[in-house]
Design a protein around this nucleic acid. Structure first.
Lengths: 355, 355
DNA sequence: TAACACGATGGTACCGGTACCATTCTGGTA
DNA sequence: TACCAGAATGGTACCGGTACCATCGTGTTA
């Protein structure tokens, strides 16, 4: 804290005492008002709702603002109005390019709408999510965006009590709190299974990592398995690794699969990192894709379009999801009733050379 | 704003009037104090500095806090203490995995240190950077992190006037404001030039995109060129594209280079996205790397280790840079004098199969 | 035993905005 | 001309914390 100035005031007994100011040294709305010769509230109006202030005063106020380099103290404003322009965005991971695009989409729309993005990362930890949300709610946000539909009971209750607009993203389903936008991961698994079947693959497997944590990958597996079984084809194997997904692991996995399940015709990888790794690893190991084994992934990362063979995958509209979530929030903040509380953002099967 | 309760108070003339409350409906420190039977300030102490409050009171206060679901209003606290726990992090792009790792490193350390991360994106626009910083300074942050050493004069003045701790990241050099952590991009170019020379390449080129905007790529080019010329070898060509760097463009670029400069022996790409794209594109086009032309990049993205041939590149410690920036900030906030205001985070030449 | 340092607790005045209501001034209408 | 609606401006009391200082009780020291 900086001590800027002393001033002499009269205390209750009428004696002059010197008291230190506590302010931060920044120009305040009072300084601007004094300089422009108007009341503080008029400055507030000129800045927040210029139409209601006469052009004359507005000019004097603007001049004073720029002369003093006045930047409004947002905490004071938020305190007085019991709301701020901040929007927490809570994601489970920052190790993953997937969430980057969601963040980018949300950030762009929020900035456009005059909101600031507070970024939180739970590392796939439900307890941490709750702590984080509690901390961030202390900033009286105007809305919140949170990844996933599975939260601790405490988190859900907290958000409901809080009562502001909230969008749950990534998954399609009934929102726990307010609104949701995402895609059905079971449907993804379904679509991929049907694609495999249409290609004539009958001996198929699934490879994933930490499915308990990344439960959306588990949903894709469920959908995949169900559709296969419905067609009378059993899922040959599910291979799980207990490390983070990355390209290196995909290369390892494709070799493991070929060694352990040599008759496998096609593998659905939990995500594109693994699938791209599988293609690159197969290339080195002399495994021919899709002739020896076909490979597909999920996400639609651009790198998949540039490996040989090009990766068959399911494209998730991540940027659009982030944008949409922010748009739903802003609409709600503007007081519009949402057209729909639950929105299926969809996905697209991209069939390329790897299947 | 929610209106929660009415209360009857006496106005100055002693008449009872009914006035609406303006608060947000949340429990306040006053509610907690009343319930615990202590003064407000004691609640404040119990939460912020528990050691100074007797165990008895602390217990009663904690009980009241959890019964009421009390979450402190951070705006009120920040207003009163003229500082907040927020730290803006301003990056030039969110389209790029590079900044994601910086963000992740900073976020992890800041969260550990009890700070919240406010994310800003300038899209490589200096004017936008200034606006963004002004907005974010309105939140009385406790420190700031900003990418780059090139800012508008207005931004620099604003930050200096503000006076809080600030770390400029990505580049090694004299900080404009306070502290800086990064690496020398000229040195990167130098090192790569010497590597090319040591391999015996004499006809070499550089490929980049939007170098005026991504001026750090320009610095790598300068360093590259200077070291070549010092060795009496001229830079054969510089090829520029006016679109964003991505893998697809790299594939395009390697074909263009081979067509336009058929005798080229080696190309230094401005970043790994381009270089990886070049390797993958060359594979498709039947260009042999490194036999027909050698390829190198910059960043050390993990995908470079999995393409064939593996990419020779320069690894930038992005995660560590984010962490370090946050650590320098936190140290300064704790009142420690920084060991060094300018820190060279270094880089590492990773020689692999592509050169 | 008196003086005193120190730990625990409380009282009060802020921090810098905005909500709400009052007041003043203007032009149009009866 | 008196009345009134509505626009422009101002006065005041908050919002919910914390800084600063005062007070009180207790154990230690002279």
């Amino acid at each position: 804290m900086q001590i800027m100035a002393n001033e002499t005031v009269d205390d209750s007994k009428g004696q002059a005492v010197t008291r230190r100011r506590r302010n931060s040294g920044r120009a305040t709305i009072t300084d601007v008002a004094r300089r422009a010769g108007v009341a503080r509230i008029t400055v507030s109006r000129a800045l927040n709702d210029p139409g209601t202030v006469s052009p004359d005063l507005r000019g004097r106020i603007d001049a004073a603002v720029s002369q003093l380099g006045y930047v409004p103290n947002r905490h004071a404003g938020s305190l007085a109005s019991a709301t701020s322009s901040m929007v927490p965005l809570i994601v489970p991971s920052l190790s993953n390019a997937v969430f980057l695009e969601v963040i980018r989409g949300a950030q762009a729309v929020l900035e456009e709408g005059g909101c600031e993005l507070l970024l939180g990362n739970t590392n796939y930890d439900i307890a941490r999510e709750q702590n984080l949300m509690q901390t961030l709610l202390g900033w009286s946000p105007v809305g919140t965006i949170i990844a996933g539909l599975r939260h601790s009971e405490g988190t859900v209750n907290m958000l409901r009590r809080w009562g502001g607009p909230c969008v749950e993203i990534m998954e399609y389903g009934e929102p726990n709190i307010d609104m949701a936008v995402g895609l059905s991961h079971e449907a993804v698994g379904n679509v991929m299974a049907r694609h495999f079947l249409s290609r004539g693959y009958r001996r198929v497997g699934f490879v994933g990592t930490r499915i308990e944590m990344d439960y959306r990958a588990g949903q894709r597996l469920e959908g995949f398995k169900a559709a296969l079984e419905q067609a009378g084809v059993g899922l040959e194997f599910v291979k799980r690794y207990d490390v983070m997904s990355d390209v290196a692991l995909g290369g390892q996995a494709i070799c493991d699969v070929v060694a352990e399940h040599p008759r496998t015709e096609a593998v659905f990888f939990a995500n594109d990192d693994l699938a791209v790794g599988a293609i690159l690893g197969a290339q080195r190991a002399g495994i021919r894709i899709p002739d020896d084994v076909a490979v597909a992934g999920f996400n639609g990362l651009s790198i998949g379009n540039h490996v040989t063979p090009r990766l068959t995958t399911i494209v998730s509209p991540r940027l659009r999801m982030g944008r949409r979530a922010a748009e739903m929030l802003l609409a709600r903040i503007r007081g519009e009733a949402p057209a729909q509380k639950t929105r299926d953002i969809g996905f697209r099967l991209l069939v390329q050379e790897s299947t």
